[in-house]
Design a protein around this nucleic acid. Structure first.
Length: 471
RNA sequence: GGCCCGUUAGUCUAGCGGUCAGGACGUCGGCCUCUCACGCCGAAAACAUGGGUUCAAAUCCCGUACGGGUCACCA
């Protein structure tokens, strides 16, 4: 097998979304797995919708995921950058050749005429196909025109998709489509074909919304006299309602998940498992995927994006991050929440207790605010647990902590146990009022950790306040 | 509507003619326990449907239903 030359060819009309990211990932993995080349090409021929911002967002998304490219924008030398708008001469030359060989022709029909034809077909409940009005007219460049590709009337065009298997399209469902607009900018199918063949792409991996374009493109490869590449069409990603994933289903850009506190490892892991599997294994690192990924194991069915599962995957990855590193990753999220947090021993202790309890970094800052900000009491917890009855407990713990030589776990535990034993109560009866006093609520990490993280001064201050509130 | 593709639990999937249809998320129950989590144990939950082929079908073939994609001087 030749070494793969694959590409990811987004149009810069928006950020890198989940579906695009998975397409890029599958292509990238296939290239890396077999020591091939991963090409990034920006398909910016829709000048009305393409923006530099979108372009930058796509680069950012790919880099964040760890998907580097060998050819394309930012790659110096002869292998980039690839922007279709910088290759217009190439498309035009190929189109002229097709015209010269009678495989394409200039069409001078106006948009109005075409539109009228479509309307008529619709009224008569007929399938519309371009009638071939200009097929035999002589080529006159001076008149405004588009260039159309001549498709065969008979037969069918078939290929063996690496994911979907054999796919055959009757040629009479195709039409002489426009390959060059009146401003001579190519349309998608032609631009992609000319690029793929000049870039020697030998495997085209893309979303399966393109399967219907494949027959048309194959016809163009043949007309141009080039070998047809292999194709792999990846199924769509759907929302919970089984319609194509879109903004109404929530965040769809990969960087939005970065900002939500997902690790790129987790996003990659989740996306690859959505449509691909390797036995019963759920967790894969990028390096592992490079060893294991196989297009043959990509499924042919569309998959529903499930945030719960991705959060679980994220949690699994978060659990593996060393404490120091985790603190550094969490820091910006605390800062973004307006909390005065430093990368210090306290933060490391916070993330140590947080990592089992939350699934994203953003949740750290939400759930553990009270380690860095004054407590806000849950009214029910306060009413139930900061009472006249619990006041003696709070006072005893306050006195005990004030007197402790060290805030190590052993002495703290001894203190709480002793107070419980003294009153013939379960540990819970001691810990819960203290928990409300220190965190404002009834759910938190273990009390000894909380005391240690807050430190003696802050702990005593909070207990004093709680004692005051307990009346 | 034409054409193309798809259909295993709520979701992601394993399966590739003979399995008690396996795993994961989620859900529910239990254990652990100072609360919440984590962890551990357990449970409920699926082959869309009708015909074939075959000794035998989730696996192969055909139809039906349902879902998705696509039919531009968008990509």
């Amino acid at each position: 097998m030749d070494k793969p030359r694959v590409r990811f060819a987004p149009s810069p009309t928006g950020y890198l979304h989940i579906g695009g990211a998975r397409t890029a990932l599958f292509n990238w993995l296939w290239a890396r797995r077999h020591g091939g080349t991963f090409i990034l090409r920006i398909e910016d021929t829709d000048q009305g919708r393409s923006t530099k911002e979108a372009e930058a967002a796509i680069f950012e998304g790919l880099r964040w995921l760890g998907l580097d490219w060998d050819e394309g924008p930012d790659v110096g030398g002869p292998h980039g950058p690839y922007f279709q708008m910088e290759r217009l001469d190439l498309y035009e030359a190929h189109a002229e050749r097709l015209i010269a060989e009678g495989k394409a022709y200039a069409c001078t029909c106006t948009r109005e005429e075409l539109e009228a034809g479509r309307k008529r077909a619709e009224a008569e409940k007929r399938q519309y196909r371009y009638p071939g009005t200009c097929r035999e007219k002589p080529y006159d460049r001076s008149k405004p025109h588009v260039v159309r590709f001549r498709v065969p009337e008979l037969g069918a065009t078939a290929f063996d998709d690496l994911v979907k298997g054999h796919i055959s399209t009757p040629n009479d469902t195709l039409q002489d489509e426009v390959i060059l607009r009146s401003d001579r900018v190519p349309l998608y199918n032609f631009g992609a074909v000319v690029d793929d063949l000049t870039m020697k792409v030998n495997l085209v991996g893309r979303g399966d919304d393109h399967v219907n374009n494949t027959a048309r493109q194959i016809l163009m490869y043949r007309a141009l006299g080039y070998p047809v590449p292999a194709f792999a069409h990846f199924p769509m990603i759907l929302g919970a309602d089984k319609t194509r994933l879109s903004k109404r289903h929530g965040a769809t850009s990969v960087t939005a998940y970065r900002d939500l506190g997902y690790l790129p490892e987790a996003v990659v892991n989740y996306l690859v498992r959505l449509g691909w599997s390797h036995g019963d294994q759920e967790l894969f690192s990028l390096a592992e995927l490079v060893r294991l990924f196989d297009l043959k194991s990509v499924g042919a069915t569309a998959g529903v994006f499930n945030l719960d599962k991705m959060a679980w995957v994220n949690h699994e990855w978060l659990k593996q991050v060393p404490e120091e590193e985790l603190a550094k990753k969490a820091l910006p999220f605390f800062r973004a929440a307006g909390l005065p947090v430093e990368d210090d021993a306290k933060l490391r202790h916070v993330v140590r207790v947080a990592r089992d309890r939350t699934k994203t970094l953003a949740e750290y800052a939400q759930q553990f605010r009270y380690f860095y900000a004054p407590v806000t009491f849950d009214p029910k917890a306060k009413e139930k647990l900061l009472t006249k009855e619990s006041r003696p407990v709070l006072e005893a713990i306050r006195a005990g902590i004030a007197a402790l030589a060290s805030l190590d776990t052993a002495p703290l535990e001894a203190l709480f146990q002793a107070e419980a034993a003294k009153r013939d109560l379960g540990l819970g009866k001691i810990a819960q009022p203290v928990r409300v006093a220190l965190t404002g609520g009834t759910a938190s990490p273990g009390m000894y950790d909380v005391v240690q993280i807050l430190g003696r001064d802050e702990t005593l201050r909070r207990l004093d306040e709680a004692i005051r509130l307990a009346g």
